[in-house]
């Protein structure tokens, strides 16, 4: 179900600008990995290279390798579309399809993947909404528009939509930054449950969040203005937050910069 990701010497560009440089890391299955670091240091860019969403921006490109269970996602014969079906993504701002009902939103990915019988579809929608802890709140109004839910519910709807297609990996790009503390807590609890089934990678600006939910943490930083972002340090979360090996990491997490 969930698989290991190995990244080796990966660079990403926006046109001529190099946004991230020489990133190598291993991400273990069934764990939560957090990316922290100051704004503009390439965390989100790196996250988007993992499901080939980086290249949808005009002029953007990637060099290097990303291996999912040993297979290079950037090999010439790999379709970006199939990569994105294996590696789901949740965005910073909740983005349910405004023209679709709650049910249709969850089923949207399934409809792309092929034909399902109605009963099968119902089952998957129910399981996915239960999986994202939203079922009890919406089971009586599945045909209402998804955009009518609260921000936190919309974000859990987006998580349900992402897990409905049974990806191997779930990427989350600051999933709680637009949410209130209660909704944030709900999503954090959800992540701890989901890590039994998926490899989860989360970008966050909230260091307490990284400390609370993640098993491993990677600290990103820029060498300087206009320089590409790099991974300064990656280690077990408990170690990063108590005894980091790099001075820059310590400065960042103790709030001395960033």
């Amino acid at each position: 179900m969930s698989q290991q990701i190995q990244v080796s010497s990966l660079d990403a560009y926006y046109g001529k600008h190099k946004a991230i440089e020489d990133i190598s890391m291993t991400i273990e299955p069934q764990s939560i990995t957090a990316f922290i670091g100051p704004s503009g240091c390439g965390k989100s860019t790196f996250l988007r290279t993992l499901n080939r969403m980086h290249e949808v921006i005009p002029g953007a490109r990637v060099e290097g390798k990303v291996l999912l269970d040993g297979e290079d996602l950037y090999a010439a014969d790999v379709e970006p579309v199939s990569v994105r079906r294996m590696i789901g993504m949740v965005f910073q701002r909740p983005n349910p399809f405004p023209t679709m009902s709650i049910y249709e939103n969850v089923a949207a990915g399934l409809k792309l993947n092929g034909r399902y019988a109605r009963s099968e579809m119902d089952d998957i929608v129910e399981t996915s909404l239960k999986g994202s802890n939203l079922w009890n709140e919406v089971k009586d109004r599945l045909n209402k528009p998804g955009a009518g839910l609260s921000g936190g519910q919309q974000q859990r709807l987006c998580i349900a939509r992402a897990i409905a297609v049974k990806p191997e990996v779930l990427l989350m790009d600051e999933p709680c930054s637009a949410l209130d503390p209660i909704s944030t807590l709900a999503i954090e609890d959800l992540m701890s449950e989901l890590k039994n089934q998926f490899t989860i990678i989360i970008v966050t600006h909230n260091m307490q969040q990284a400390a609370r939910v993640s098993d491993r943490t990677a600290f990103f930083n820029l060498a300087g203005q206009g320089q590409p972002g790099r991974v300064i340090e990656m280690d077990d979360t408990s170690r990063i937050f108590t005894n980091p090996s790099q001075k820059a990491t310590e400065d960042y997490i103790t709030g001395r910069f960033g």
Binding site: R84, R85, G88, F91, F97, L112, C158
Partner: peptide, 13 residues
Amino acid sequence: PRMHEEAALALGA
């Protein structure tokens, strides 16, 4: 909105 198109792309559309 770009984010709706990205939502569809990220589902493998």
